[in-house]
Amino acid sequence: MAPTDTDPGTRPVVLDVFRFLPDAETEPRFQRYEIPYQDDHVVLDALNHVKNEVDATLSFRWACRMGVCGSCGMMVNGEPRLTCEVFVSEYYPEPIRIEPLAHFPVARDLVINMEDFMEKLPTVTPWLVPADPKPVEEGEFLQSPAQLAAYKRFSMCINCMLCYSACPVYGLDDTFMGPAALALAQRYNMDSRDGAKAERANVVTSHEGIWECTYVGDCTRVCPKEVDPAGAIQMAKLSYATDWVKSMLLPGANR
């Protein structure tokens, strides 16, 4: 029995996919794929169907397909999304336009180059510098549930880069440290065990750091893990500004 356009679920899923092959092309193009509809398919499943059954030359990153490895971020109809978390049914039967994450150079097809972030990340000292170091033999540092809760959500970042794709500040000027890196700095600043907030100030409060952020807030809106990088950056602004005021009023006082 031939499927008809009126039966729900029998019309194909239409994917308009950004293609760019640097070995052969200087300009990208969109390629249309039509594949069978399955109501429990996420966009990543649809892309894998294309890769496995239709066109093995389509390149994209993915790994865990459960929203925690951070590999499969792409623009889906203009919005940065984790493609393993967005269902085809959300768009079906309208065509779905899939592009590489905005604001990043495209290496090939849906694969972006994120080396910029990988180079920036270490500069914000994204590791714990114990305020009061002690050897492992002396056991864990105590941290109350409330102290944990204070920074916990800023520690949930999976480095998926959706926030960079949402941030027009980064899009206009990629010297900006960006939401994820700054949120991680704030995560450690707020950790009761840490003592390196002043050390991080050099980079975090530099021109490319928190003050470059104009608080568009779209990073927080698109964050799939509710990290709220925009909030983290505003908290960092308040916190460093307070420190500065204190240092002006009480010169020599311990920050």
Partner: peptide, 11 residues
């Protein structure tokens, strides 16, 4: 193998 590209050849 249908993909002959050098860049990110995931096939």
């Amino acid at each position: 193998l249908t993909d002959t590209s050098a860049t990110f050849n995931y096939e």
